[in-house]
Design a protein around this nucleic acid. Structure first.
Ligand SMILES: [Mn+2]
Ligand SMILES: [Mn+2]
Ligand SMILES: [Mn+2]
Ligand SMILES: [Mn+2]
Lengths: 224, 224
DNA sequence: TACTGTATTTAGAAACATCTAAATATAATT
DNA sequence: AATTATATTTAGATGTTTCTAAATACAGTA
């Protein structure tokens, strides 16, 4: 470990901030291991990075007790999320990518684009409010609040509308596609097996079986 | 200096290859200083990189005597140039950037985009054959040959058509724009002052004065 | 309160890209 | 052929991100 100093914000550091924002919405403060898992690096690598981010004022870091974003860190994180979702949108709307490709392509893509390119992509896509997976394109913290409940929390007889789906598993997204699940679609729950068993549901007037795992990655608004 | 080994081709290495290709079209083998100048880094940094590129088989490196691209290196360099020009095209055609912005934005942008994104940009721009500055979008070495002669080499009375302009000085590009100079435009040379003095020319039936420096950054095909 | 397992941090290293200052090789000039 | 100027490489360093293995802190159980 080498102690360093610096003021600039690299690509990787933005990625860390983005993941911290995501994780702290589930539980705060965020643990080193959770972040390491999310970033796909070793916990010791995270520790090193936390020192840098802390020194730069992006996070509040209490060794052994996890981290939270500072106001500045939150601002940067939201900018990163906004950019990611605009790029996803650009990839689907302007280049014709499928939504299951958009997320991963965007991850490779989103670094090193200027604010101006981002702005123009946003305008060229008609200032969209959500990404292809239904998540808001944020300007501030409030915009990052995700509405909706997991599909699996619904009971038989209830009707709901899909608002968003987890976008980080391409294969799962492709499978959702084959079931007709995407933001805006109406789902009627017919039944739900016990012990985390599959749901039976109607999507676009077709009867479908939806496993526990998948049904927890689809977020819906109850209609009735 | 640390001796290292590795097989992957980073962004920076691609940039080096791109600049080597460009420089060796003017004079070969390429000198360390020339490359350092082009890359905007110190000569010693270039030496380090040359060792890496040589070890990876992209260049033929004779210490103290300059370098040339290998077949493999040329292939990579051409891919980089192709990508750069497609991205420039995308920026002007799809995002509405001016040509003087396109080059610099593309430099920041072109890394980390997948082959598939590049392909789709290419298709979305209707498979263009040249970049916004008139340079070919290459598939092979032959495609990189630049036709045309410097405007300044013309004599009074001659008429020419602009094929390409140097794209690395934004301010100069903006000034060219204000004179109506761009690929495809017809220029009639009226006069040329001695001792590297300015030219007098007609562009779009307007009389213009064009300095030596500028006239050497505009490449034209003689029409008569 | 002491023990113990897991989470977290430190130690030491590699790989990358860059720098300045110093040493050396090559080329040009006397 | 000897000298000198310039180009180029080496030496030693910083800064970035990451790793494995070892040490330590914390929290939950005995
Ligand atoms: Mn995404
Ligand atoms: Mn998304
Ligand atoms: Mn260019
Ligand atoms: Mn160009």
């Amino acid at each position: 470990m080498t102690v360093t100093k610096g003021v600039f914000n690299s690509d990787h550091q933005r990625d860390y901030l983005k993941h911290i924002l995501h994780l702290q919405q589930v539980s705060s403060p965020v643990a080193t291991t959770a972040l390491a898992e999310a970033m796909g690096v070793a916990p010791s690598s995270v520790t090193d990075m936390l020192k840098k981010l802390s020194r730069k004022g992006y996070i509040n870091y209490r060794p052994y007790h996890g981290i939270t974003l500072t106001g500045e860190g939150e601002k940067e994180a939201i900018k990163a999320v906004r950019r990611h979702r605009i790029v996803e949108r650009f990839l689907t709307d302007m280049l014709g990518f499928e939504w299951h490709e958009a997320h991963e392509e965007a991850l490779a893509f989103e670094h090193n684009i200027s604010d101006e390119v981002e702005r123009r992509m946003y305008v060229a896509c008609n200032k969209p409010t959500v990404c292809p997976h239904g998540y808001p394109i944020p300007s501030s913290v409030e915009d990052t609040i995700v509405s909706g409940v997991p599909l699996y929390s619904l009971e038989p007889g209830q009707i709901a509308r899909v608002v968003s789906v987890e976008d980080d598993e391409p294969d799962l997204l492709r499978f959702m596609d084959s079931l007709g699940i995407k933001p805006g679609v109406r789902i009627k729950v017919d039944g739900k097996d016990p012990f985390k068993g599959p749901m039976q549901a109607e999507i676009d007037s077709k009867k479908r079986t939806i496993g526990w795992h998948l049904a927890n990655q689809v977020y819906v608004d109850k209609v009735s």
